[in-house]
Design a protein around this nucleic acid. Structure first.
Length: 560
DNA sequence: AGTCACAGCCAC
DNA sequence: AAACGTGGCTGTGACT
């Protein structure tokens, strides 16, 4: 247990004075062990249940050390024990293994977490903690084992501190994100079925009595497209069949992609493109989707914090990170409540400016519309905003190098562009890069290039360079978002004794908070403050400005 | 009856 | 105008 009571080294983070290892096993056993550091608290393991955890949370507010928040916290939460601070051994292990260069280990830990069958969604048949047979950790360690793992991780963090000074903050923020994800899955997003029905009916026609029947408007579009192709039997959902029919109808296309279809002036194009747009909505976010994912007026997706290599969140079901704009109007606050919707504008290029310490680009972040500012600064034409946006995104994604706007960017903001080029070259050479707080990109696997012709190997190397080029930005933006979430989550806990205040949605650079109407102003303030904290802690004193628009609305769609 | 790759498109 | 980064999800069609 050596070192178990050491403080987590967290620059600017909050530090609990008491650390408690919590181990709960699926067979009904459970124990809590307060780790030695401060006096007056028993250090021997003792049986624990949710009530006791909740009591300890009230009296001591420890930093709970859990083997795997995703597996253990849903049951605790259902039983009424809400934790405010924790150290998640599982997600921390993935971060540490990555930083230590153990790519296989890191990938295995992440894959195990992403595949774990947690189910905060299932209602507990009884208030017991331990009936969740779906999610026993592979080996449920006792509290002493969890404490030992914690001590080991703290020692490894300490060893990495000089090389990756932000990693302690990232560990804390990632752990908090894991708590937030479980809570968000449990509470769900308010989903108004009537509004959803109205949107679907307007676009598709009324809900058919059978799932195997196309809604009327969809059917009409399908018939119109088929008639224009002079082939009433064509299966529009079959790429093979559709491509054949298109070519027979005289359209020299090589794919059935929308952008290729739109190049041709043919009566089938418009109904076909519209059909596919609506067919996708019907299949992915229509009535069947709602039947599966919306219960009691709320959408309960399953989140996997850190499930993406870059540290972004993934989802395991429900498609929460791809809710189409067309149906967002169905996210409506229930009576007496409002949604506080906030998103960081142009987060990634602002992060780039900070990482590169590019003075010109940092100055430009003072403006709300960064792309317009860059167009003015680099091209002298604010109206070239769209061109500049494409050029900057290309620079961050590794896309087309030939545009005049990109050349202008390189002349005017050399430090920013050089950072991207360096990251790309590192990846092309097979090296790793890391985010601002120290999340490490997986190294290219050693045999990735073996046995390939030079040309193929070169293409693969460049592809890996595009990955690392983007990683430094995307992963650093994810760092920022994790600190935002961790900070906001604690602020909302302070609001909660005055009423309902919950994080209900998070997507890369935007959050939605649901609050009782009287708390809306306070929640808006909390979101803005959390954004400022994230910018200060993650991007330091670079002077970069990250605007976080936050507004209280009734519906998710009510925003600019 | 499952599994898989693919094409295509949704989100950031 | 498209391509380029990270994903999820759907239906098809080929496979076991």
């Amino acid at each position: 247990m050596r070192g178990a009571g050491q403080r987590v080294s967290v620059a600017g983070g909050r530090i609990a004075s008491v650390h408690a290892a919590l181990a709960l096993t699926p067979d009904g056993g459970g124990e809590v062990r307060v780790l030695p550091e401060e006096g007056g608290v028993p250090v021997d393991p003792r049986p624990a249940d949710a009530a006791e955890v909740a009591e300890l949370e009230r009296s001591a507010s420890p930093r709970w050390v859990l083997a795997d928040v995703a597996a253990m916290y849903p049951g605790l939460l259902r039983a009424g024990a809400r934790l405010s601070r924790c150290h998640d051994v599982a997600s921390t292990e993935a971060l540490l293994l990555g930083a230590e260069g153990d790519a296989e280990g890191a990938a295995a830990v992440t894959a195990a977490r992403a595949g774990a069958a947690t189910s905060a969604v299932e209602p507990a048949p009884q208030p017991s903690l331990f009936d969740d047979e779906a999610a026993p950790p592979p080996e449920a360690p006792d509290a002493e084992g969890v404490g030992a793992a914690y001590a080991d991780q703290l020692a490894r963090l300490e060893r990495l501190r000089e090389r990756l000074p932000g990693l302690g903050l990232l560990v804390a923020a990632e752990s908090a994100s894991c708590l937030a994800a479980v809570e968000m899955t449990a509470v769900g997003v308010p989903w108004d079925a009537d509004t959803h029905d109205r949107l679907l009916a307007e676009l598709l026609g009324p809900r058919p009595s059978s799932a195997s029947v196309r809604p009327a408007k969809l059917q009409a579009l399908a018939e119109e497209a088929a008639a224009a192709l002079d082939n009433p039997r064509v299966n529009l959902d079959s790429q093979v069949d559709l491509l054949r029919s298109l070519r027979r109808a005289g359209l020299p296309v090589t794919s059935t992609r929308r952008h290729e279809l739109r190049r041709h002036d043919h009566p089938a194009v418009a109904p076909l493109v519209r059909y596919r747009e609506l067919a996708r909505l019907h299949a992915a976010h229509g009535w069947a989707w709602r039947d599966q994912w919306v219960r009691d007026g709320r959408f309960h997706p399953e989140y996997v914090p850190g499930g993406v290599v870059s540290g972004r969140w993934a989802t395991r079901g429900g498609g929460a990170l791809q809710i189409p704009k067309a149906v967002r109007a169905a996210v409506v606050a229930p009576p007496g409540r409002l949604l506080v919707v906030a998103d960081a504008g142009q987060l990634e290029p602002r992060v780039l400016a900070a990482l590169a310490h590019d003075p010109g680009m940092i100055s430009a972040t003072a403006e709300g519309d960064l792309y317009a500012a860059l167009a003015r600064e680099a091209l002298g034409r604010p109206e070239a905003r769209a061109e500049m946006k494409v050029a900057l995104l290309s620079a961050m994604y590794g896309g087309g190098a030939g545009s005049p706007a990109l050349a202008a960017l390189r002349r005017r903001f050399p430090a920013a562009l050089a950072l991207l080029e360096t990251a790309a070259r590192t990846g092309e050479a097979g090296g790793s890069v890391h985010s601002v707080l120290g999340r490490t990109s997986p190294p290219r696997s050693p045999d990735w290039l073996s046995g390939l012709a030079d040309a193929v190997a070169g293409a693969r190397s460049r592809a890996y360079g595009r990955f690392t080029r983007n990683f430094v930005i995307q992963a650093s933006a994810a760092d920022w978002a994790a600190v935002l979430l961790a900070t906001l989550r604690l602020s909302l806990a302070d609001l909660r004794d005055r009423g309902f205040a919950e994080l209900v949605f998070f997507q890369h650079d935007e959050v939605v908070v649901e609050v009782d109407t009287p708390l809306a102003d306070a929640a808006v303030d909390a979101v803005r403050a959390a954004g400022a904290t994230a910018t200060r802690l993650v991007l330091g004193d670079t002077g970069v400005h990250v605007p976080l628009e936050a507004r209280a609305v009734r519906s998710y769609a009510d925003r600019p």
